[in-house]
Amino acid sequence: NITNLCPFDEVFNATRFASVYAWNRKRISNCVADYSVLYNFAPFFAFKCYGVSPTKLNDLCFTNVYADSFVIRGNEVSQIAPGQTGNIADYNYKLPDDFTGCVIAWNSNKLDSKVGGNYNYLYRLFRKSNLKPFERDISTEIYQAGNKPCNGVAGFNCYFPLRSYGFRPTYGVGHQPYRVVVLSFELLHAPATVCGPKKST
């Protein structure tokens, strides 16, 4: 009989979020998941679920829940969905086509923008091939755009693969920082350890 609540607040209220190319993952297990707390949290810009209804989450049990978190621009949030393409979905964070879970995003301009620009948040701009679902690539190898080998030196046709967002408070909404948490639900042939409040007695 599990009684402790799942530590969703640790994920959602973290002081610093990860850059999207180096997205953070927390495994959540052996706890009671009260999703209504999240669902009623006012400032969400997006709360979209795939393969599961957000209002039914509290009735369900899962083997594991993974909480992935990172920061992207407002106009990139739409790429955090199954079957998407674009710089983020291709080179930074890719969801599987059969994704079961929820994508939760909110504007973090007050936290993550600075006058003069916040350059701490990076994304991958160049990559030889697209990421596989949930693949994480933190390499900083110089990207070779031409035929000539770069030998690890940036220059003509040789690019550092990461780019900084440089968030400023005055940017338009599409270019403002958004914090994103992706909850993915794993249902294995194993005992369920993460259940909603109704199922955990």
Rank of each mutant, 00 (worst) to 15 (best):
A33P: 10
F44C: 07
F12W: 02
P43S: 07
A192G: 14
D34A: 03
S29N: 11
K26Q: 09
Y93E: 02
F45T: 14
A46Q: 15
E186A: 05
Q176G: 05
A42N: 07
V71R: 01
G117P: 08
P82R: 01
C195E: 12
D59I: 03
H189A: 14
V153I: 12
Y91I: 05
N118L: 03
C31N: 07
G196R: 10
C102L: 02
N40K: 15
F134T: 06
F167K: 03
V65I: 14
T63C: 07
R168D: 15
L95M: 07
V173K: 14
V181D: 01
R25Y: 00
W23P: 05
Y171I: 11
F126M: 14
I80E: 03
Q176V: 02
A89I: 02
D9A: 14
V11T: 04
D9K: 11
V77R: 05
T170C: 08
G116Y: 09
F44D: 13
N147G: 13
L188C: 14
A190H: 12
N30K: 06
A105R: 02
G146C: 06
A33Y: 15
Y171G: 13
G83A: 07
L60T: 10
R136V: 05
G86R: 02
K198E: 13
Y171P: 10
V11M: 05
S139V: 05
Y165I: 03
V181K: 00
Q144G: 09
S129V: 11
F12V: 05
R136Y: 03
F70G: 02
L183D: 00
C102P: 00
V52M: 07
N151R: 12
Y91C: 06
A190V: 10
N118D: 12
S69Q: 03
T3Y: 07
N157C: 08
V77I: 12
C195P: 11
N87W: 10
S200E: 13
P169V: 03
Y178T: 10
P133M: 02
N87C: 10
L122D: 11
L122N: 15
G117C: 05
C6N: 06
I80A: 02
K114I: 10
S78T: 09
N109K: 09
A22F: 06
N92T: 01
V37I: 13
V52Y: 05
N157R: 10
N75H: 11
L131D: 03
A192M: 12
N13I: 00
Y159C: 12
L5M: 10
S19Q: 05
L5P: 14
Y123K: 11
V37A: 14
Q84Y: 03
R168N: 14
I80W: 00
A145F: 11
R124D: 05
L131E: 04
K48Q: 09
N4C: 08
V52E: 02
G155Y: 06
A154R: 14
E186W: 09
D98F: 05
N1C: 05
F47M: 10
G155T: 10
L111E: 15
G152Q: 12
T100R: 13
N118H: 08
Q144N: 11
T15V: 06
I138A: 12
C49S: 00
N130W: 06
G83T: 05
V37T: 14
P7N: 14
F99D: 00
F167V: 03
G116F: 09
G196P: 13
G172T: 13
K198Q: 12
T63L: 07
V182P: 00
G152R: 11
W106H: 01
A14L: 04
D90F: 04
V52P: 04
S129G: 11
P169I: 01
Y66F: 11
P161Y: 01
G146S: 12
C61P: 09
Y159M: 13
C31K: 06
Y165D: 05
L57G: 04
G51D: 03
